[in-house]
């Protein structure tokens, strides 16, 4: 792994909480690492396993899903479903040793600009430390 490795992380942010949290981090001029490509979704429950697998199998070094805290979902229950789906996919990755640490779910509310910056910076550091997605070594799969 070269020391100047710059990870490519896909971030799925829920429109109502985490995307607004990201916005707040920006407007508060907080320092956020630049490795996250943000995709805005209406709810964290919009994320299905196919989207995450697409990102990882097509070369993303990490996937971050962020949504409203449990109990605060704009659609009341969406994030509970998201949490189950995440747990399911994470377990599959764990069982097959597919580097489950490359997938993370974090609750970030609209008022948590600081937490957003912390989550992204910490996850970016962790992924940088892990190095590139091994899929790059097996390009023909």
């Amino acid at each position: 792994m070269s020391s100047d490795f710059k990870p490519n992380i896909v971030g799925f942010l829920c429109n109502w909480c985490s995307y607004a949290g990201a916005d707040l981090a920006g407007s508060s001029k907080m320092e956020v690492k630049p490795y996250l490509s943000v995709i805005r979704v209406m709810c964290s429950s919009r994320i299905n396993s196919n989207l995450v697998l697409t990102a990882l199998l097509w070369g993303a070094d990490g996937v971050l899903i962020a949504g409203c805290h449990p109990g605060d979902c704009h659609y009341e229950q969406g994030n509970y479903y998201a949490r189950r789906r995440f747990a399911l996919l994470k377990k599959i990755m764990e069982t097959l040793k597919l580097e489950p640490d490359r997938l993370q779910l974090s609750w970030v509310s609209a008022s948590e600009g600081k937490r957003y910056a912390e989550v992204v910076n910490k996850f970016s550091d962790e992924i940088t430390k892990m190095g590139p997605n091994p899929i790059h070594k097996n390009p023909k799969i």
Partner: peptide, 12 residues
């Protein structure tokens, strides 16, 4: 789903 499950998920 159950509200009281996977409490540790998302707190990172």
């Amino acid at each position: 789903f159950k509200e009281e499950e996977f409490k540790e998920v998302g707190e990172h």
